[in-house]
Design a protein around this nucleic acid. Structure first.
Length: 720
DNA sequence: ATAGGGTTAG
């Protein structure tokens, strides 16, 4: 009995000073004692609920709350807070509205919570009606409430474009809404964004004092809505008001300089961050990583990451994305593996960041593994991820899988359409690509800059000059897209491949932006294919004017001179190259066998199975010679005799990879090879015949497209 | 009460 009365006193003491409880465990013990010893009174129950909600113990709080017939303010407040803090914003708001219907008025520090819930549920209407409630209660002078309102209007401003949101009339004081109304996205009227901006200004004007949070909220609001200059102006003004920018301020400012590609200003901010000890802050670090990556300063991104003592999931995502966006794919994949080793769980963003690395490197096995992970993790409906999967499967040579993913998507956006169109284009299925483009337009999805690159790529690989012209002309007329370098390059390439060399030359000359070396280069290689040395010389001169270090042009000219037996001119080109110290990139092919990538360069004997590869090559050569193969040595310009040339072609990198693929995989397996430069004519002929004699499908991806070899034919119909 | 990372590109 004594012990019971002691407990009673103890419980009473705790209820009088609930803050003396320090752990969840103590709180739970208190509940047990309370249930044993106390008669239920609304006020003591409310105190207990508030204890639980402070520890974010939702279920015990609800248990007690439901035992009350007419809960007092403290009980409502605690339960609303507990719901909001455990992410149940809808329940939190429903509870708030219920409380109002009981005729209970909220107290000042409840508003920030419910406003946050409105932001989360994208429910502007409810937020506005709560704002009305705040004004009526005269609480708009409260700093915290004011800041929460500022935040709400700032967030809704950035939700504006492409609204189509459901409108419903609802007032906090009118009673209960249905739950689907509460989570529904709210009003989208014309000029709504301006209204929100005005609301923000009005709130700001009403507030008697502004603190750092007020400034940061408004700065972030401007920065996230593309009003960069206004945001920067406010940062300066904030300084004039004797308010020091903190880490929150910096993480609004850094993305602006990333967008501006202004590494000088970005570095200044980095310096400020170091001086104020913000550089070890994960938020600042990931913004810095992103800023440097956007400015093509990947080394600086890496050093920020390496100096970070604590890394969260977003720090990892940022550095992985930074590597992939800068073309450092191996490093990106390495970091991804390190992230997994460090037991950091990949998020949706991780997958859409890493996937392009698989696409560029043609590492299908890795892409498939990631795809498995995506399905298991429940990420497959994410638009970004699905688009990157479409792209990955297409680039890894599996256009059917790409199409399957594309068709599985619930909605297709412009990026996913563009990815699948580009996929078909790269595989030489020009008609399918153009058909999809029409379907996209019929679906009401507007093409953008990149979509048209895909269209021209498709036309280019099938020689569809008339269609290409039509699209080129309608691009700006129908969609207001001005042709840029990539479009000009694709058009020039298209005309060149189709043999319309003079037309291409004039086309490049008439561009409204200055042509680059790479645009002229597409025409130069067309000149080689169509053996027009005279025009080639003119084009090469243009290249050397804008890009005197262009390796490809020297090599190409040298080869063309050699083919025309103008040895002196050929030698001159080689000497120029030597003087400038520029070297040709070696031709290289790779193939995946049993989840490993095997790389070959031309004439390479270093592979452990080289002897067997050589035997296989000889064997294949005999077989295809029986099918009528005659080596075409025209494209090999080494100054050696024909027999040697035959041998040199015979050991081109793609053939080594192919022979290795044939001897190391079961009969009938599809072989996928990737090459860093264009396949030569002779290899193309040889691989066609090899596909026939070994009865296999062979897929070769070079630097610009796919070749599917089957039954002695290639999908490009010898046009590439 | 305020903050960070993502898909398509000859």
């Amino acid at each position: 009995m004594t012990s019971n009365s002691t407990t009673k006193t103890l419980v009473k003491t705790f209820l009088r000073t609930p803050h003396s409880l320090k752990t969840k465990f103590q709180a739970k013990q208190l509940l047990a004692q309370f249930l044993k010893t106390q008669p239920y009174s609304p006020s003591s129950t409310s105190i207990l609920i508030s204890v639980y909600s402070n520890f974010n113990l939702l279920h015990p709080s609800l248990f007690l709350f439901n035992s009350l017939n007419s809960p007092p303010l403290l009980a409502w407040k605690s339960i609303i807070k507990c719901y909001a803090n455990s992410g149940h914003f809808l329940n939190s708001l429903t509870c708030f509205v219920q409380m109002r219907s009981f005729g209970i008025y909220p107290d000042p520090n409840m508003f920030p919570l419910v406003l946050k819930a409105c932001v989360f549920l994208k429910n502007l209407r409810l937020g506005e009606s709560i704002h009305g409630c705040i004004i009526r209660l005269g609480l708009d002078f409260d700093l915290f409430t004011g800041n929460a309102l500022l935040n709400m209007y700032a967030k809704f401003q950035s939700l504006q474009p492409n609204g189509g949101r459901k409108v419903f009339a609802f007032n906090v004081f009118d009673g209960m809404p249905k739950s689907d109304e509460l989570c529904g996205t709210s009003a989208q009227e014309k000029g709504a964004s301006i209204i929100q901006l005005e609301s923000m200004t009005k709130v700001l004007e009403m507030m008697p004092i502004w603190d750092v949070v007020s400034w940061n909220t408004v700065i972030a609001g401007n920065a996230q809505n593309g009003m960069y200059e206004e945001a920067l102006r406010m940062v300066r003004e904030m300084g004039n008001a004797n308010m020091k920018p903190d880490s929150f301020t910096l993480s609004s400012v850094l993305p602006i300089f990333a967008e501006y590609v202004d590494v000088i200003k970005g570095k200044e901010i980095h310096g400020y961050a170091i001086r104020h000890w913000f550089d070890s802050d994960c938020y600042i670090a990931s913004s810095l990583i992103d800023m440097y990556a956007n400015c093509a300063r990947i080394e600086d991104s890496c050093s920020v990451f390496n100096l970070l003592s604590k890394r969260d999931d977003i720090s990892w995502n940022s550095i992985i994305a930074a590597c992939v966006q800068n073309g450092v794919f191996d490093e990106g994949l390495k970091l991804f593996r390190q992230m997994l080793t460090a037991k950091v769980k990949p998020r949706d963003v991780t997958f859409s960041s890493i996937m392009p690395a698989c696409a560029y490197l043609t590492t299908l096995h890795l892409g498939k593994q990631l795809h498995g992970y995506i399905i298991r993790g429940g990420f497959k409906d994410n638009m970004f991820i699905a688009s990157s999967l479409v792209d990955m499967y297409a680039k890894c040579g599996n256009i059917k899988a790409a199409r399957w993913i594309f068709d599985q998507m619930e909605h297709q956006d412009m990026v996913s359409w563009t990815a699948i169109i580009m996929g078909y284009a790269l595989h030489g299925h020009a008609r399918d690509a153009l058909l999809l483009f029409k379907q996209m337009e019929m679906d009401g999805v507007k093409p953008n800059y990149v979509s048209y690159i895909a269209v021209f790529t498709a036309c280019s690989h099938a020689g569809l000059t008339d269609e290409a012209w039509r699209y080129f002309n309608s691009m700006s007329r129908n969609h207001g897209i001005k042709p840029g370098l990539e479009h000009y390059a694709a058009m020039a390439d298209l005309l060149g491949r189709a043999g319309k060399l003079e037309e291409a030359y004039e086309f490049i000359g008439s561009m409204h932006i200055a042509p680059t070396g790479s645009i002229w280069s597409t025409l130069l290689s067309a000149c080689r294919v169509h053996k027009n040395l005279e025009l080639a010389e003119k084009v090469a001169n243009e290249i050397f004017k804008v890009d005197p270090e262009n390796v490809g042009a020297y090599v190409l000219m040298s080869n063309m001179y050699a083919a025309a037996r103008r040895w002196k001119d050929a030698a001159k080109m080689r000497i120029f190259m030597k003087k400038k110290g520029i070297r040709k990139e070696p031709a290289c092919s790779w193939i995946e066998v049993k989840n490993r990538v095997h790389t070959f360069i031309s004439g390479d004997k270093s592979h452990p199975l080289y002897d067997r590869i050589f035997e296989a090559l000889k064997d294949l050569l005999e077989q295809i010679e029986r099918e009528g193969y005659i080596p075409d040595t025209n494209e090999d310009f080494h100054d050696v005799d024909e027999e040697q040339k035959k041998y040199m072609i015979f050991s081109h990198s793609e053939r080594l990879a192919l022979a290795f693929g044939i001897i190391s995989t079961p009969a009938g397996t599809t072989i996928r090879i990737t090459k860093n430069i264009r396949v030569c004519v002779d290899c193309h002929t040889a691989i066609k015949l090899i596909s026939k004699v070994v009865q296999r499908e062979i897929i070769v991806r070079d630097n610009s497209r796919f070749h599917h070899f089957k039954y002695g034919k290639c999908s490009c119909r010898d046009y590439w």
